[in-house]
Design a protein around this nucleic acid. Sequence first.
DNA 1: TGTACATCAGTGAACGCGCGTTCACTGATGTAC
DNA 2: TGTACATCAGTGAACGCGCGTTCACTGATGTAC
Lengths: 241, 241
Amino acid sequence: VNRPAVASDAGVAPAGPLADRPSARRRRNARGEGARLSDEIVSAALALIDRTGTDEAVTLRAVARQIGIAAPSIYAHFADRHAILQAVVIRIFGQLVETIETSLSAAGDDPVERLTVGCTAYVEFGLAHPARYDALFSQRRIAVLAGAADSRDRIPVGPDGLPRMQFGAEAFATLLDGLEACVRSGRSASTDVLTDATAVWVALHGAVTLRVAIPGFPWPDTASFVRQLVLPLARVTAPGP
Amino acid sequence: VNRPAVASDAGVAPAGPLADRPSARRRRNARGEGARLSDEIVSAALALIDRTGTDEAVTLRAVARQIGIAAPSIYAHFADRHAILQAVVIRIFGQLVETIETSLSAAGDDPVERLTVGCTAYVEFGLAHPARYDALFSQRRIAVLAGAADSRDRIPVGPDGLPRMQFGAEAFATLLDGLEACVRSGRSASTDVLTDATAVWVALHGAVTLRVAIPGFPWPDTASFVRQLVLPLARVTAPGP
DNA sequence: TGTACATCAGTGAACGCGCGTTCACTGATGTAC
DNA sequence: TGTACATCAGTGAACGCGCGTTCACTGATGTAC
């Protein structure tokens, strides 16, 4: 059992190990502000993911316990467990994009520098929050578990020929933009930006997930490893004269 | 509930949804051959992983149901659920290495061709058996769930300076050998074989896991995508005159 | 050649647990008259 | 200004489920005498 000790000064007398007692007293939301609980539920799910390392820990009862509400109260805000996880994934993608954009705003004008800075920020986010990163790409597994055979065609190609991802499209678009900027300024020899950006993304994703899965491996320094992966895959050429 | 329909011609009358009834009659092992059940347990776990898409489905009761034994019978062969999963991982790594070696035995002498053939076999194994591949690298998560803080240093560097992985070391050693052969024959400009092989491995791992996670993305053809990733990361140069 | 016995390969019932979900409900707060 | 009432934001008990694990057991089979 992974439950933290109940704060005894809250005056809560646990009725037994089965009781879903809140870990802290909670003031109910004022009338008309019930929607606040939606945010609290997502935050609690995120906290559970961080604390346990896996999104499997996001159960209705665990979320309710974390917030200090009764489990059935969640149904007023989310249809089921999967709906909570979906909201968490959207929030994490937002954090990822924000992290990358913050790093880019501090970077210079050189497109190659901007590309490596953004990619490094991506990898560092994954390494800093491995459970959150994992949640971003564990959705397929959930779909399979739900008995759905529709795991294909969930992220179709749009009419513009670009992949139309449900979430995370913004992060990939940033990578595409960065590579295009390199090509425009003559710093990348890429003739197929979509495919080359895909190669870069795949390498970054592998770097995050394998490092997290095998922490004892002699991994190179993050910044230089990212350059080692990104520069050749993005077909970056030596700076002009 | 994912349980297959019980074969009614086996004469088994299910006592209700809770009963752990075997899906087929089973002859008990002869005296002295009890160890055969170990293999059956691992095979059943592998079948569950393939059928459900996740190693979470490997529960003692599900394994027992699959084989047609009582759940407690497993304790004579495995200490707990984790021990079963560990045995499954070892078997899957064996299959992966065998697949790669079979592909190499059909390849020619050119070291670059051998490198790409082996890498393609790796990726194709992952795409053909995504749940098995996933199980190989989901161990960390299990360790965290077990409450262990020892997820670090589980794969230490050996006295030879090479990573000493518990499992999968053979597959990585094959990749190292392949890259070294390219360097020896002048087809790779790598000056740090360990780091470059790591980069290649990371890219292949990302290619498998991201493709499986986002099947609707416009992925390139596997063989050419593998070449696109491996050749630059392995610093392969144009063939000599 | 017969028989008592040890061993092997399991079985079956039961336990307590956490889970998703349902159901009828409660108590504070704003609003219509 | 008072009061009945609707609405909102939840609660608490209960259900059936699958799970890991324990316990005492069973029945076939080989072996010692």
